[in-house]
Design a binder for these strands. Structure first.
Length: 306
DNA sequence: GCCCAGGCACTCA
DNA sequence: TGAGTGCCTGGG
């Protein structure tokens, strides 16, 4: 499917800014990944002289209609539909306006916004986001990718597209079943380290609360309520919860503070690296309901500066 | 081979 | 309530 006239868009910025872990850059610059149960290849053709405007093409393969479970808007859209991908890439949002507003808050943010001009916050599956960001804690990005791939390989569905095989992200029910039968040892081949028990516990608690539909339901809750619900899961603290809210529940007023953001906040605004509360307060005051998007520009920029 | 990572829970003042 | 500390493990 083709989306013409897409603005403020760069596949590299979107997939290399650390919000999603299952997309890989191919030789021709397109990205291949799995989302919504579909294997997809996304390509972007910019207009001449305008690197972040142009045509987005998505080829998606989703057998069985690719209909995901759950109750949310996206969950109800087949992964081969335009609606799904327009939502996934957040195409309806005017990032130009957001960037202008953020850039006006100061020179550091203006630089960050210019550097990551094609970033968009993906609307991901909340269950996948929850498990992925639990795995991300105290971990390197290459290994995070490996851990998630292992999890999919062992507990997801194996499918083929062209000559490529791929695995869907495991369903909460399936994972819970494996954990009930074999205990936490079921996760041993995934190399999750001490996070295995967090994954097991999170799975148990999500199932207990009604499964993946419970997480979908949190989209309708207010930010504070959703935050409270997510952080009550064992192994999920404020950083991971903020990421789940931002990337999985569409709540953009959160401001995940990780080591990179802490460094950036110190460098740019003189806020102590251990003072999460001050960082969040600054974000709330200066970035408002776009704090989560601001965080992603800052994160991508901070990492580029080392 | 060593080091350390996009945190978190737990402990102890 | 806040600061300090241990934690799995494999990619760089």
């Amino acid at each position: 499917m083709i989306f013409e006239g897409v603005k403020d868009f760069s596949l590299e910025h979107i997939f290399e800014c650390g919000q999603a872990f299952r997309w890989k850059k191919m030789e021709d610059g397109a990205y291949a990944g799995v989302a919504g149960g579909a294997y997809a290849i996304a390509a972007f053709a910019p207009e001449s002289g305008r690197p972040h405007e142009g045509r987005l093409t998505v080829r998606a393969h989703a057998p069985e209609g690719g209909r995901t479970e759950g109750h949310g808007r996206l969950a109800a859209a087949p992964a081969e539909s335009r609606e799904f991908w327009a939502g996934y890439f957040d195409l309806a949002r005017d990032y130009g306006a957001i960037k202008r507003r953020l850039a006006a808050s100061g020179s550091a943010m203006a630089e960050a916004v210019a550097y990551g001009a094609g970033i968009r916050i993906l609307e991901q599956d909340p269950w996948e986001a929850l498990i992925s960001f639990i795995i991300s804690q105290n971990n390197h990005i290459p290994r995070i990718r490996g851990c998630i791939e292992n999890l999919c390989r062992h507990f997801g569905e194996r499918r083929e597209y062209g000559g490529d095989e791929y695995f869907t992200f495991p369903k909460a029910e399936g994972l819970a079943e494996a954990l009930t039968e074999r205990g936490i040892d079921a996760l041993a081949p995934c190399g999750l380290g001490y996070r295995a028990k967090y994954i097991a516990e999170a799975t148990r608690q999500v199932i207990e609360r009604g499964g993946e539909g419970y997480l979908e339901g949190l989209k309708r809750q207010r930010f504070e309520e959703a935050m409270k619900a997510i952080t009550s899961i064992h192994g999920v603290g404020p950083k991971v919860a903020s990421c789940v809210l931002l990337f999985g529940l569409g709540k953009r007023e959160g401001f995940p503070v990780d080591v990179w953001i802490a460094r950036a906040m110190k460098e740019f605004y003189g806020i102590g690296e251990n003072d999460r509360a001050a960082a969040e307060a600054y974000a709330k005051e200066h970035f408002g309901d776009a704090a989560g998007i601001a965080q992603q520009y800052l994160f991508y920029y901070a990492r580029s500066q080392k």
